[in-house]
């Protein structure tokens, strides 16, 4: 039993890091401006294609290409904020949900036309790591390390740099932050950009080990919702833990029931947690 269980658990946990970084992007945006970004999935997919296009066209190492993708994700997010979100930031939730969903439709529409929906695959491998009964591709391990690195840098940015402190102030109380002279519009745009940057990085990391299409982001978006609710909407570090919980769950369940039941469990849990503890298992905004 345990020689199936352990490898599958390790597999799940490593994947959980990547889920976590995707969810962190969603959570950051929610925490700062109370917006649920429904264009999250397509941006993850764009991250996948970013790495793919750079790697296949220039042969640049995917982990170096990740820097380019991250920067592009940041810029794209700031543009999306400026065009689609800023005008309705104080409107009822429906407006921001629909505005970000329209961005989703635009990206998927153009993406399908330009990139088709044939699955792509990055022809890149680092070999595998074997420890006892466990064999995992190095790309998965690298993705977990990259996630931890990015999380560390994000927290450093939020707690040490001036814009980072501004972001926390705006998240805490936008009106008060504005009274203190913080340029809230720019800070909101930056936060949105950081959120999409995390999504793009997640996509880029996933692309190093799974095949994908422009539609692949959707399921990670749904998982991000589940994770955010596990970890508390608006709590980025909680999102990382939530990701690990979900990944662990996905790793463990196949030992007890057919894998097709995993989503039933995930979404059932999701609705249940929303009902009993809408602030998330680990509490909301920190």
């Amino acid at each position: 039993m345990s020689d199936i269980l352990l490898p599958s658990l390790v597999d799940g946990l490593l994947l959980g890091f990547v889920y976590g970084i995707a969810a962190m992007g969603l959570s950051l945006i929610w925490g700062v401006m109370d917006v649920i970004n429904l264009s999250h999935g397509p941006i993850i997919a764009l991250g996948m294609f970013g790495i793919y296009l750079i790697f296949t066209n220039t042969g640049l190492n995917p982990y170096l290409a990740l820097f380019v993708v991250a920067l592009a994700g940041l810029l794209l997010g700031m543009i999306i904020y400026g065009v689609a979100v800023h005008r309705v930031i104080d409107a009822p939730h429906l407006s921001t949900l629909l505005a970000t969903f329209s961005v989703n439709m635009i990206i998927i529409g153009i993406g399908t036309a330009l990139l088709t929906t044939t699955p792509r695959n990055i022809d890149f491998t680092l070999g595998s790591l074997s420890v006892g009964p466990i064999t995992v591709p190095w790309t998965r391990v690298a993705a977990a390390f990259a996630t931890m690195l990015v999380t560390g840098l994000l927290y450093l940015f939020l707690y040490v740099s001036r814009p980072g402190k501004y972001i926390r102030a705006v998240a805490n109380n936008r009106v008060a932050a504005e009274l203190m002279g913080i340029p809230s519009a720019r800070i909101l745009a930056l936060s949105f950009g950081l959120g999409t940057m995390l999504a793009a990085i997640a996509g880029g990391l996933i692309a190093t080990f799974f095949p994908f299409t422009i539609l692949s982001g959707g399921s990670y978006e749904l998982k991000s919702f589940v994770i955010c609710v596990l970890g508390g909407l608006g709590n980025p570090l909680g999102a990382l833990f939530g990701g690990l919980i979900l990944g662990g769950l996905e790793g463990l369940t196949p030992a007890f029931m057919p894998t097709t039941w995993v989503p039933v469990l995930e979404f059932g849990l999701f609705v249940l947690i929303l009902l009993v503890r809408p602030s998330g298992l680990l509490g909301s905004k920190s």
Partner: peptide, 21 residues
């Protein structure tokens, strides 16, 4: 607000996954 919207997505996905099985 948004919590209800999220929950309805969850219900739909859970239903789909359940029917799938």
């Amino acid at each position: 607000g948004a919590y209800f919207a999220l929950a309805t997505i969850g219900v739909n996905e859970a239903a789909r996954a359940f029917i799938n099985n």
